[in-house]
């Protein structure tokens, strides 16, 4: 009992200074945002900003797009990240080269660079992607990658998987390296094949890292905008407009700060709910 009290004291000493600063800062910043979402330009109380958000057809479209963007990007990034981590964990030679090329190169590429680089490759006329795919006989005609709404969404998701899978890959790899080889040896002696070993040892052992990575990737992807902004600017039409690109447009293009603040607050509630569910599960898991 006294040990627990002592532990608690030490823990609070380590956490509370940081916690208080960050939370007070957040309350201050979000407070100014909530305030502006409930006021008119003249500073009077109003619900108009929220009403205008809910009646704006672009908002609905942007929300649907955000779901597609997040599901596509997160699935792609986590699966590719896991595959790469497993492969790198198996290999011994050429580690430095493989890791540098696969795990760090896309990630080290600046957002703005990744955006213009893919835009250049997707170019209808001079784009290398069409040329290569035609030469490999995978497609017959040039594809206008960023030309139609559905195709543009697929194109930005592909670019985002390329840009973002490294982080999952890196943390999965670090996680894999903390799994004791004894576990595998014991399983092998018990006659478990590699498929079984993967599902019975690797995945359960990796679960804390997977859950953390999944949560962060979902939230980051919802909030990530440079790639879309540079490649399509939300277009064509509203084909790749996500909630975040729309907030940016409202705030800094149309200068409707208060409406942008209202939409930000709605987004905040949604993300908070997602994070709440994840954190509950993560800490419950560890409490066992």
């Amino acid at each position: 009992m006294s040990r627990l009290v002592r532990e608690e004291k030490t823990a609070f000493k380590m956490i509370l200074p940081y916690f208080l600063i960050i939370v007070l800062l957040f309350i201050f910043l979000i407070g100014s945002n909530i305030y502006s979402s409930f006021t008119t330009e003249e500073g009077k109380f109003t619900l108009q900003n929220y009403y205008r958000v809910f009646t704006d057809p672009v908002v609905g479209r942007a929300m649907a797009n955000t779901v597609v963007w997040v599901v596509g990007s997160v699935l792609g990034q986590l699966l590719l990240g896991l595959l790469v981590a497993l492969l790198l964990n198996e290999s011994t030679r050429g580690q430095i080269i493989f890791r540098s090329v696969i795990l760090i190169l896309p990630w080290a590429t600046l957002d703005i660079v990744a955006g213009v680089m893919w835009k250049w490759m997707y170019n209808d006329m001079y784009g290398v992607l069409n040329d290569v795919l035609v030469k490999l006989h995978i497609i017959n005609d040039y594809i206008p990658w960023l030309g139609s709404e559905n195709m543009a969404m697929l194109s930005v998701i592909i670019a985002n998987v390329w840009k973002g899978f490294c982080l999952s890959g890196m943390f999965f790899l670090a996680g894999l390296q903390t799994i004791s080889p004894d576990l595998y040896e014991a399983a092998e002696i018990d006659g478990a094949n590699s498929f079984k070993r993967f599902w019975r040892i690797t995945i359960p052992q990796l679960k804390p890292v997977i859950m953390t990575t999944l949560m962060l990737t979902i939230i980051w992807t919802i909030n990530y905008f440079p790639l879309i902004y540079i490649m399509t600017g939300g277009g064509p039409g509203y084909g790749t407009e996500t909630v975040v690109t729309y907030i940016y447009k409202l705030g800094f293009r149309f200068l409707e700060f208060n409406k942008a603040a209202a939409l930000s607050n709605i987004l905040f509630v949604a993300i908070f709910a997602i994070a709440f569910v994840f954190l509950r599960n993560i800490t419950k898991e560890e409490a066992r």
Partner: peptide
């Protein structure tokens, strides 16, 4: 490392700045 009260709440609290895109702040 440690067991203490409000662990879950504190951990969630630390994450608040991840909840919104940079542009909002």
């Amino acid at each position: 490392r440690y067991e203490f009260r409000y662990k879950r709440t504190l951990l969630a609290g630390v994450m608040v700045f991840q909840m919104l895109p940079l542009v909002v702040f």
